[in-house]
Amino acid sequence: MALLTLSSPHAKGPQRTSTMMRWVIAMTLPGLFMQTLFFGWGNLHNVLWCTLVAIACEAAVLKLRKRPIGFFLNDYSAVVTAVLLGIALPPFAPWWVSLVATSFAIIFAKHIYGGMGYNPFNPAMVGYALVLVSFPVAMTTNWATPLPLLEQPASLLDTLNIIWGQIPITDALTGATPLDTYKHEIAHSLSDTVLENPIFGAGFSLGWEWVNLAFLAGGLVLLALKVIPWQTPVGLLVGLAIPSLLLGSDADQTAPLVIHLLSGATMLAAFFIATDPVSSCTTTRGRLIYGFGIGLLTYIIRAYGSYPDAIAFSVLLMNFAAPLIDVYTQPRTYGYVDAKRGSKAKEKN
């Protein structure tokens, strides 16, 4: 009688890559809801638009690469990239900015390197960095003014018309982000004066703090489900908090800790972007270092650089370092006195 022969183990746990990806997407929803609540329909539109572009690009490339399209689309990794881009891009970013960012992320940052699992850089951040450098005006002037500060918020139809270039955007709808505002105004003002600006709300950042708290909540769910490791977000938040406590203790010089943690893309980065497993470190200690590096670089660029936020660049810079960190943070294997370090060639004994 013919029996099936298979290699052990024969039992299989319940975890699936596509399930993990779907959890990541699901847990961005609270943050996306807050974005829509405080900044209008822009991000929601962008998420949907980017998803459409991502799926189209993914399918096209898979066809060109003669890979089974359904099988790979089912892993949801392209959708995760698209959702993260849609959330991260300015709400009123023109449609072609999102298109360029998403298609570049999928085609170049991901598939040129071999598709899911093979990309050395976070695809969403590659796409984001590309449009940030290429279209600085579109990327800095299209941030939305929080809706509570507007007498007449943009309707869904207005938002669509603005994004698709049918009507020009009005100045009232857009404004600088709190991080940007604080950075520029503190140079010639005192903290109390700067914080009088209504975009800071009750001393934090109006709207932004709720968006960040929502992403934090979603991230904690992912942690509990073991979809993401705890080391990366903890490392990142610590890496951002330490310099902002040490260097930013004087609120009259630089932005205080709460603004760093609850404004900009901090929580999104900590729980959803830096935790992309493919391009991050894979050892336990490595992830702490990797997260810490992103946090530190983010602080440095935010405080001393010319960009208002710095997640994309920090993540990409640490992506470069991840393989090296991995090699130097191997755990101590059972039966060994010390952990091994480095590569074989450098081993002495």
């Binding site: 975890q15 890559t17 598709g115 899911m116 699992g117 490791p229 493919v278 894979t282 336990t284």
Partner: peptide, 11 residues
Amino acid sequence: AQACIRCGLCA
């Protein structure tokens, strides 16, 4: 089998 995403669950 799908691609390894280096999630580290195995480690």
